[in-house]
Structures are given as C-alpha cells and as structure tokens.
Simulated scan of single mutants.
Amino acid sequence: MTKREGQNESTKRKEITMSQNHYRVAIIGAGVMGQRMIEAIAKHPQYDVAAICDASESRAQETAERAGNAAWYTDAIRLLDNEDVDLIYLAVPPKFHHPIALAALSRNKHLLCEKPLANSIEEAEDMLAAAKAAGVIHAMHFPIYYQSLLPVMQERLRELGEIRRIDILTHFHQWPRPWQQVPWLAGREQGGFIREVLPHFIHLTYALFGDLQVIRSHVQYPPDPLACETGISAYLELADGTPVTVNGLANIAHQEHLDYRVYGTEGTFSLVNWTNLHMGGQNEAPQRLEIPLHERLIQLLDEFALAMEGKKARLVPFEVGVKVQRILEDLRG
C-alpha cells in the first residue's frame, strides 16, 4: 500500500468513527459467509445484528443467540415484515437471491448481496431494475475488491508495460471443498466452481481492465446430469482484444491452487491463492510483495456506511454484478 492510499484509508476510518449514525442489519443466510459477516459487525461501531434468518431453525436460533440475542426467523418474508432494519445482507444460495432481494427492495431496504448476483442473467437484470426503482444502496461482496491488494495491483499495473495476456487458473483437489460440504455447491443448478470461484476473478479483471467478453468456452461435466462441472477451458478478450484464458479443473490429484496472472511486455504479476501477490520484471524471478492485509469485511462495512450517509463510497453496485453474471452465463454455455 502506498503512503497516499494509507492516508486515504486512515481519513475514511476517522470519518466513520466520527459519524453518529447507527445501522440495524438483518442477516439472511447463516452459513459460512453469514457467520463471517456477523463476526465483522461485532467489531464495527456503526452496526448491530438485529435479526437472523436461516432455513435451519436450530442454526438460526443458535446464531441469533451468539449475535447478542437477535431476533431469529426461518422465513425471510416474515423477517422483512416484522423487523425494522436498515440493511439486508443476503448470503443464501444463488437461486434464492432473486425472490428475497425483490421482497427486500419492495420494502426499500438497502441491500448487500453475495456473489453471484443471481442464478440467471434475467434474474440479475430484474434485481438491478428493482434496486434502481427503490432508490436504495445496493452492492455486492467481492472480497478482493475490499482488500489492500487491489490498490497495489492497480498502481503497479503500469510497470508491466503493454498487457499481452491474462491467465486465470483454478485447480481444486476436491469440489466442493472440505469446508463447503453443502449439497447445492455440488449441483449443476446453482453450484460448481464456475459460479462460486470464477466471479471473483471475472470481477477482478473488470476492476483492472474494464469490459470483457467470452469468445469460446468448453465445460466438462460428469455423467450425472445433476452434478456440477469438473472442468472448463475458455478464451475471453478485453475490449482491446487482449486475450484472457480460463483453466479450471476439479477433483484432480493436485493441491488447491488459484492463480491470476497478468503478463506484460515489461513484467508480470500474479495473485496466488487470494492473498499472495508476486511481481517481477524482465529476466527476474517474481518476488512476493509484502503487503499488509486489512479486514476486508470491515472495509466493506465502512464503505456501505458512507454510502448510506450520502457520501462518496467505493462499492460494487448491481450494475457490475449484472456484467459479471453475463460472463458467467456465457462461460457455462
């Protein structure tokens, strides 16, 4: 992080701390991401968890107790009807985003949604239209965007010279991963690593370089018609024609490995396994850059608070979520 970026972040944190506004949050979906958001809210002075909703009654109740005896529900519509909240955090599986989001937006609630935005491009566009009509703050959670790595990548991009190619590699020994053993992630309807992992790198490409399009894509599926993909090979292009390749495989004899690599005429940088940024010039072995990492969910909550107060904020709106959704659908064919 540069000195200027550090100063800007410090100024924002001071601005947030000085604000007297306080926000009540409803968490809809108490799985892994819901739990992480609850932990982040507990550390943030401007937010409280007011209500929890999950399809599992026991998990909803237990989570609500740990979150400070918040109200709990198994029906999202009942929560929306009964609770006075400012912000909805939507962390349910993708096929449930659309109906719950429309219900929240019809009640003029600010909405923070997990990726992908929806389970189809039609649903994503519908959610965007509803958010615009409601006139509320709408944003998506793309973790890399709220991490200190992205500003460094954006600043040092110029050192690479003319960009020649971008390679995205996603290899998994097991899918779903051991810590993600839920049926929907293994299913073709809404699971698979294309929907779960590739949105991060599609959005990163958009954040660094702008629009892109799928030229061709080949997806491998197992014999079971209900099971998600096991592989993908795809070729995309940036608006200027720069090639972007996708190489994804699951259930292989290989440790999980993720690599987002940008090749330029003067250098290369590579984001490995989410948080390790490597960079090297011509005839140099790439070296890992020591970049202090901050809590990305705290950063996201900071930005959302600024937006709710009518101030300039750095968020990923649903408009961008629709762009990512379109690429996902084109990749899946």
Rank of each mutant, 00 (worst) to 15 (best):
M18P: 05
C113H: 09
G310H: 11
F209W: 07
V272N: 01
L90Y: 04
R326A: 15
A186Q: 00
I194T: 04
M33I: 15
T170V: 15
G210M: 13
A139T: 14
F201W: 15
L128M: 09
V85D: 06
E122H: 12
T205F: 12
R188W: 02
E309M: 10
E9M: 09
A71K: 14
R296H: 14
T265A: 11
Q61F: 05
A285R: 08
W184A: 01
E65A: 13
L128F: 09
A313I: 01
V324M: 08
F96K: 09
V244D: 11
E295W: 00
L306R: 15
A130D: 07
S56Q: 08
R24G: 03
K14D: 15
G241A: 13
A129Y: 00
A70T: 03
Q46P: 00
A253C: 09
N108T: 09
G161V: 08
P225V: 02
P243E: 07
Q7P: 00
L208S: 12
E229A: 01
E295C: 00
Y73F: 15
V244F: 12
Y89D: 03
V246M: 12
L87Q: 05
L226N: 12
N119E: 10
L169S: 10
R177N: 05
P143D: 09
S56N: 12
A234I: 12
Y263R: 09
E159H: 06
A91N: 08
I168W: 08
S56W: 06
P223L: 01
T245L: 11
S233K: 14
Y260R: 09
T205Q: 12
K132Y: 09
Q61Y: 02
F172C: 00
R216H: 05
Y89V: 15
D224Q: 04
A234N: 11
E159K: 06
A118V: 02
T63V: 08
L102D: 01
E114R: 00
R216P: 00
Y47E: 05
A139F: 10
P176T: 02
A55I: 13
N21K: 14
T74D: 04
I144Q: 13
D302T: 03
M18T: 14
D224R: 07
G281E: 08
K132L: 06
V92R: 03
R164N: 09
R177P: 05
G281W: 03
K132R: 15
E122K: 14
A124W: 03
R156M: 11
H110V: 07
F269C: 04
E57T: 03
L87I: 14
L149H: 08
H110A: 14
I327W: 08
R314Y: 07
S106L: 00
I166G: 11
H138T: 10
